[in-house]
């Protein structure tokens, strides 16, 4: 009974976060950050689950505009959060959808609400840490990521993220402690080696920096940042010709990156959003399956397929280049 009550409470928290964007805001007439800035807030009723136990899969045509697709995504997020509050994936999905809409505040709030019920959620601390890192709050990010690491050291590239935040906070020695286990570990990721290279540069150990950057390049040969780091290390070691070769490769890869970025600019954002929404429906279907709600899962996956089909059709019609 208590668990049911807590689940309802969490659903309400997530739901409120998605609608009013701040479940932890004081009551009264204090406005949210979005309201203060004049950002439109969709009325709560527009996204309320219509009937418990039945997904209100839209039968209408898949929206054409980015705004319409985003609205449907928000409805999905509210639904899945309210229906499956105990699944961490629900919060992850809701937070991801909010973040895609530029709403970091709601995304973080959703994770905080999740952590209120599941303080042992490594995923929750991890996501909060990544949001803080994205916003440049590196010291805070380091704390959340360290908590996440202690709970689950296998989170995707947790050492790399934590090491980077420590390095950016000028906590070089601590960054080294986090990143050093990478040495000799075949599973060590390129990103971790990249940050370890920067730690070594800061420590004045140019030889080890060179080895770390080279290791990152061995794992990811098009890693431009690692090529730049390698050039820096080689230059400091007095190996001017080798440094210039690394810089040349850096320039070449950067030029290729620029071409890709220019191509991406001409993509239609509604096409991109359609693809994202199709993926989110698929994820929601898996969440429903985890809770053995097969009817709902079927409805979600069906809608996802319709959205995916619309995405494929628009691509074939040349909307997205």
């Amino acid at each position: 009974m208590a668990a049911t009550g807590a689940a309802v409470a969490l659903a309400a928290i997530v739901f409120a976060a998605l609608s009013a964007r701040s479940s932890i805001a004081p009551s009264g007439d204090r406005r949210t950050g979005a309201q203060e800035r004049g950002k439109p807030v969709t009325p709560l009723a527009a996204r309320a689950p219509s009937e418990a136990g039945r997904f209100p899969a839209p039968s209408a045509a898949v929206p054409e505009s980015y705004a319409g697709l985003a609205e449907e995504a928000q409805t999905l997020a509210a639904w899945i959060g309210a229906r499956h509050p105990d699944q961490p994936q629900s919060t992850a999905l809701a937070a991801t959808i909010a973040a895609e809409r530029g709403d970091q505040e709601t995304a973080a709030t959703a994770w905080r609400a999740h952590l209120e019920r599941h303080p042992e959620s490594a995923e929750g601390w991890y996501r909060l840490g990544l949001y803080a890192a994205k916003e440049g709050r590196d010291a805070e990010a380091a704390e959340w990521l360290e908590r996440a690491r202690r709970l689950d050291p296998t989170l995707p590239d947790i050492q790399g993220h934590l090491g980077r935040c420590l390095l950016k906070s000028d906590r070089v020695a601590e960054a080294a402690v986090v990143l050093e286990p990478v040495i000799g570990d075949d599973r060590g990721g390129a990103v971790r080696l990249f940050h370890l290279g920067h730690v070594r540069l800061r420590q004045g150990n140019d030889g080890e920096a060179r080895a770390a950057f080279q290791g990152a390049i061995d794992r990811a040969p098009t890693y431009t940042g690692a090529w730049y780091g390698l050039a820096t290390a080689l230059s400091r070691l007095g190996l001017a010709d080798d440094a210039e070769r690394a810089r040349t490769e850096f320039r070449r890869l950067k030029a290729a990156d620029a071409e890709t970025a220019a191509r991406n600019l001409s993509r239609d954002e509604s096409v991109r959003m359609r693809r994202l929404l199709a993926g989110w429906y698929a994820a929601a279907g898996r969440i429903a399956t985890l809770d053995r709600d097969t009817e709902e899962a079927k409805a979600l996956l069906s809608r996802g397929a319709a959205v995916e089909q619309a995405a494929s059709s628009s691509t074939a019609a040349g909307e997205g280049h």
Partner: peptide, 14 residues
């Protein structure tokens, strides 16, 4: 990832 029970779980969220 499945959460591992922390040695000393935090009592309040950030």
């Amino acid at each position: 990832s499945q959460p591992t029970p922390p040695a000393a779980p935090p009592k309040t969220p950030p």
